[in-house]
Structures are given as C-alpha cells and as structure tokens.
Write a protein that binds this DNA or RNA. Sequence first.
DNA 1: CTGTATCCCACACGATACTG
DNA 2: CAGTATCGTGTGGGATACAG
Lengths: 129, 129
Amino acid sequence: MVMGRRRPGSYVCGVDAAMDVIGGKWKVLILWALAVRPHRFGELRRELHGVTEKVLAAHLRELEADGIVHREEYDEVPPHVEYSLTPKGVTLNAALEPLGVWGQRNVLASATAGEVGEDDDVALITRGA
Amino acid sequence: MVMGRRRPGSYVCGVDAAMDVIGGKWKVLILWALAVRPHRFGELRRELHGVTEKVLAAHLRELEADGIVHREEYDEVPPHVEYSLTPKGVTLNAALEPLGVWGQRNVLASATAGEVGEDDDVALITRGA
DNA sequence: CTGTATCCCACACGATACTG
DNA sequence: CAGTATCGTGTGGGATACAG
C-alpha cells in the first residue's frame, strides 16, 4: 500500500504517525537488516532483492532524516559508507516486533498451512525469514 | 505512504506481511474506530474526516477479506449495516499498540515540544488523539 | 563502491454523480 | 442509509544510464 506522506500535517494518532516513518516499500526490511548488523550500501542492495539503487538511496535518506539510521562515511578510496541503527531506530524496531509476530502467525502461517494453534512458539523467530 | 499490495507474492518477514493488511491510508484509523465500538458506514465516514465513500468502502471490503472486520447487515428499511472487529482484528489492534506508543513519543511529541523524557507516561493514552 | 539524473508508469486515492 | 460507477491525478517506485 502506498500512502502519501503527509508530513506537513497533524496525525490523528501515534500509529499513523509511525506509519509515515516506515511507510516505504523497503523500509522495514532495511530496519531488519540493520538490526542484525551495520550494512554497506551494496550489502543492502544485495540483501533487499529487487530494490533499485535510486529507491534504496531515497529510503535511506528519509530514514536518516527521521533519525532512524546513522550514516557513517569513511573517506577512503574506494568509497566506504556504513549504515546503522540509531538508538531511536532500535526502539522503532522493538515496537515493530509485535506486529511481526502477528503477521507471522496470521498471514504467513495461514498462507502456507491450515490454521494456527494459539500457543505456537513463534516468538523466537519473530520476524522470521 | 503508499506501498503497493503484493498479495500474490511471498513476504520476506512477518512485518511486511502485516503491512500489507494495514497498508491503506485510512485502515489504522478504521481499526482504531472499530476498537472503540462497532460503527455504521456513515459513522465511520464522519469520524474519518476526509475519506471518500469509495475509498472507505474499498478499505472495508479489504479488511473484511483479510478477516479483520465483520460486516453485519440488518435487513431493514432504511438499510442498516454495522462493522465491528473480529477476534483477529482485535489481536491486530493489540499488536499495533507498541507502534502507536512509539509514534506518540517519537513523532507527535517531538513535533510539538522539544525533546521527550524517557519515562513519560504515554502508555495510558497509547493511540492518543 | 556509492550514489545521481531522467524517463516512465501503475495504482492508490480523490471528486463527483448516481442508485437500491 | 449504504453504497456503486466513472473519470481524473499525484507520486512512489522501477529501468536505465551516467558520475565522483
């Protein structure tokens, strides 16, 4: 889904405010990748299979502007840039975890199997591959 | 932001699977409204200030197809329809709460005030108006 | 290696009118 | 009241080429 960024405006509640920050096709995947470890631009491009350089760069700029990711540039040749989560990004990631569990149990699971028991322990693979 | 629904495909993780369900400009607001109490079509239209009938109807149909909302039609004159959350919708709403708290503290608060303390009790106004 | 610069387009959303 | 039918549009994102 694409919802237009309405930055200028006032949000109705905290959820849609947060949705504005993570509302990009690849943003949660970027968050997830950076939660594992810092990544270089090329690493992200390879791990987010299908993203174009233009869009990846744009998303990273936005996440940086929102204080979610930190961009560290090493002045070397060849160029070397590392992206990592800021403390704020870490908290966002944590806030996303329940949603990940929900999606895992209510979308992914039901898409492949029949129904899902109530006590399946999916918590350990929260955002599962 | 609007991210295109990629229903046909396989999701990379639970989060973007869930994002597909709530990925509509008004969906979280619908969820929120229905969490308070069941609503009629016209009530939703009035509470979600700015939504058009077409889009509201489309979102409700998608949420219904995803098993998030229940549509109860009373065969009367004039027509009477009530939308409410399914148990699955309730769990989704619950999974959204941490994100709401995050947005409240990291987007809404910082937009109006300076910085936010760590222990402010915003938990009680989770999805706050 | 880490990006910009263009061009293009599908599609989510909006506006308006109409119907059972 | 509770929606459909049509038409128009903004923009997020894809493809490709080029640059520091």
